[in-house]
Design a protein around this nucleic acid. Structure first.
Lengths: 330, 330
DNA sequence: GACGTTCGAGAAATCGATTACCACGCTATG
DNA sequence: CATAGCGTGGTAATCGATTTCTCGAACGTC
């Protein structure tokens, strides 16, 4: 309720002096400063951030637009971003685009309107519309996926190579009819992982069939349906590369429904190392992505760009790690 | 870059008219309106939210302060909040207090400074300091935990009754040395669940020992340590009530390390229904909390209070559901 | 034809801070 | 002793919108 003028009046000084004391920008007579701090204390004055932001033409808030708050991969990123931002005095506004371009677009608009300091996002499509941000020269860093419609920093994972490695691993383990539960067409990581899968099939000179590839949303229910479909083919795959841990939950349920055992009956490798992957029997072989590190790096890049927008953009590709456990051998 | 005056100049009208057209508050000559919208279009004008917020003395942003972004229970709440808020035209700022009163306090200050429209939080302690919010009469709704230091709406789960029910269930299933992996003292849900556990022990007239109760953080690693400790007692418990799914991951690892099987060797009931709980063998018996519904309700309550702060506060207690699966019988 | 009412649109105040600019007093130096 | 230089602190402009106030035109009624 109390404004800077109230404090100024009570301390018997001008608002300029109050501002100077509270921000410590310029030297003020210690006696005056004392009076001001006491007055502020007594009125329990909280500066109005809105007015401050307007005048300074900036906010110490970052947006993080991800496609699924309930996906552990993204929350691990969120944690990394949050920690780094918080340490630098920034707050994070977490937005859930739900893999929906319209929702994403709305958040982009909000970020532009609120003049947020910067945006970290995993674009739903490579051509997501970020013009409102570009017009305000709001720095953008993408994570997990690239953005074609803007020149910005990107922190990626070498999904394609990892998918190839995982597929080769399955082939080496003696699986001969390797299929893939892939993410939706148009989503960069989904396409990359599928491409990597094909690379792997080719490199292993393994048998392949388009029928063993099924694309669906990055969700448990969708993964289950996809696996159901694949496993009821006349000639079903005997191994599956699954593009995310959320899908893997559904795939494993589908196996259980049919009394099939991962590894022995159907080899499984899934992307993302979730806490539960070692609890199940057999333990799940996964492609672990350094999600926390991705978030931290993205935040650092963004903060650096906020401080200096002249540097050229960079793309960092982090390596994923194949953690071989028991779901990928008989 | 373009301001309302630029638009006004280009359309040959006053800024007041531009504002009126863009907000549709008052009627404006269609011809003028057309000129204004075109000018805004051509300049790709985005209103400055900061200026707007300052003038209107409000923001369409809510804060959601939770203690762990990586805990599925809280992300499910976040999702509920997000969906409801978004539908009402509000954005959500997600803050991770990490169960740390200092971090929590910082976010409370930020929310007060930025004059956010309202705050939904799960306080780290019942006496968390929310004075900055109270001074600005910022509406608060607590979820999962209550706040003693302020009179505000609360959406809770009847943890105590659920814990009692779960404990009785274990006793009925023939477990005789029932222990508890409880959350940190001072955290409301942790205390409630432990109290419910004791209620259950008493009601079942089961044997009990303080040594079978172990308190630790709501984390996997902490749960593992706690379980390790309990299982290496001279007379170890033969069943455990575990206070969260995050802890359960660690507890189950501890069991696996010792070659023990849930259910047969050690009966397990855990709070929170996570996607993976049916994937493991035996499937985990859980106390399912309606997290999404909690988030939705909390958001609705908050929006209602933002619209009308005169109504009296309410406390809603939702029922948790015991989902009996296989980890609670031999 | 005079007067009251309504409606539309511009001028200017306002939100609450920050900050550019200026005035004043004191010290140091030639 | 005069003046340049510096440190303080007040006045007022500024950020960019919204909103109140006011005025003029148009319209209707008697």
């Amino acid at each position: 309720m109390a404004t800077i003028s109230d404090v100024a009046a009570r301390a018997g000084v001008s608002t300029a002096t109050v501002s100077r004391v509270l921000n410590g920008k310029s030297t003020v007579d210690p006696a005056l400063a004392e009076r001001v701090t006491r007055a502020a204390e007594e009125l329990s004055y909280t500066p109005n951030g809105l007015a401050r932001n307007l005048r300074r033409r900036e906010t110490a808030v970052l947006a993080l637009i991800i496609s699924d708050v309930e996906n552990p991969f993204f929350t691990a990123i969120a944690r990394g971003v949050e920690d780094t931002a918080q340490a630098a005095g920034y707050s994070v506004m977490l937005c859930n685009s739900d893999e929906n371009p319209a929702k994403e677009r709305r958040y982009v608009e909000v970020a532009a309107m609120e003049r947020l300091a910067g945006v970290i996002m995993s674009p739903t499509t490579p051509d997501s519309d970020v013009r409102p941000l570009l017009e305000h020269r709001t720095p953008i860093v993408t994570v997990d996926r690239r953005l074609r419609s803007a020149d910005c920093d990107a922190v990626l994972v070498d999904s394609r190579a990892a998918a190839k490695e995982a597929t080769l691993h399955l082939a080496e383990r003696g699986y001969t009819r390797i299929g893939c539960v892939a993410g939706p067409a148009g989503v960069m990581t989904a396409d990359d992982r599928l491409a990597g899968f094909r690379d792997g099939i080719r490199a292993a000179q393994a048998k392949s069939s388009a029928r063993w590839i099924r694309r669906c949303e990055f969700r448990g229910a969708a993964g289950r349906q996809a696996a159901d479909h694949l496993l009821s083919l006349p000639e079903p795959p005997d191994a599956l590369l699954v593009s995310s841990s959320t899908m893997a939950v559904g795939v494993l349920q589908a196996l259980a429904d049919r009394g099939l055992r991962a590894g022995r009956d159907v080899g499984i490798v899934a992307f993302d190392d979730a806490p539960w992957t070692t609890l199940i029997d057999p333990a799940l072989t996964v492609v672990a992505q350094p999600a926390g590190a991705i978030g931290q790096l993205a935040a650092r890049l963004l903060l650096a760009r906020i401080a200096d927008r002249t540097t050229t953009t960079s793309t960092t590709t982090m390596r994923a790690q194949l953690l071989i456990r028991d779901s990928s051998h008989r």
